[in-house]
């Protein structure tokens, strides 16, 4: 079992961070199911990609720092990487959807610039 010698308040803090992050991620995935149109649904996964990831990574850094007795900031790299790549992913997906909708003349297609 990990964290047997950890103070109880630290364990609660780590669990609170991880659970809140996971809850935001789950809400984002729920939005993927519940929202009606594609352009609405693209907003949903950003919940997990921003606050969800940030909270879970903070919890992970806190826990590993306490366990190893030194500052572990490695997980921040995942955060940096995700911050830089998520806009590219979503932008390309939105562009692809807009392109197809305009091409097919669908009613929900975005207006021309």
């Amino acid at each position: 079992m990990t964290g047997a010698d950890l103070p109880v308040w630290a364990a609660w803090l780590v669990v609170a961070l991880a659970l809140t992050g996971a809850a935001f991620s789950l809400t984002g995935a729920l939005g993927l199911v519940r929202l009606r149109t594609f352009y609405e649904r693209v907003h949903a996964p950003t919940l997990g990609a921003t606050l969800g990831t940030a909270l879970i990574l903070c919890g992970s850094m806190l826990l590993l720092s306490l366990l190893e007795g030194r500052l572990v900031l490695r997980d921040a790299l995942i955060g940096v990487f995700l911050t830089v790549t998520t806009p590219v992913t979503l932008l390309l997906l939105a562009r692809a959807a807009a392109h197809r909708d305009r091409h097919e003349g669908n009613p929900g297609a975005p207006p021309k610039l």
Partner: peptide, 16 residues
Amino acid sequence: AAAILDWGLGLAQGAL
């Protein structure tokens, strides 16, 4: 502390 971590993180994993 170990039990809190095990249960809490397991719950987070379930949500994910």
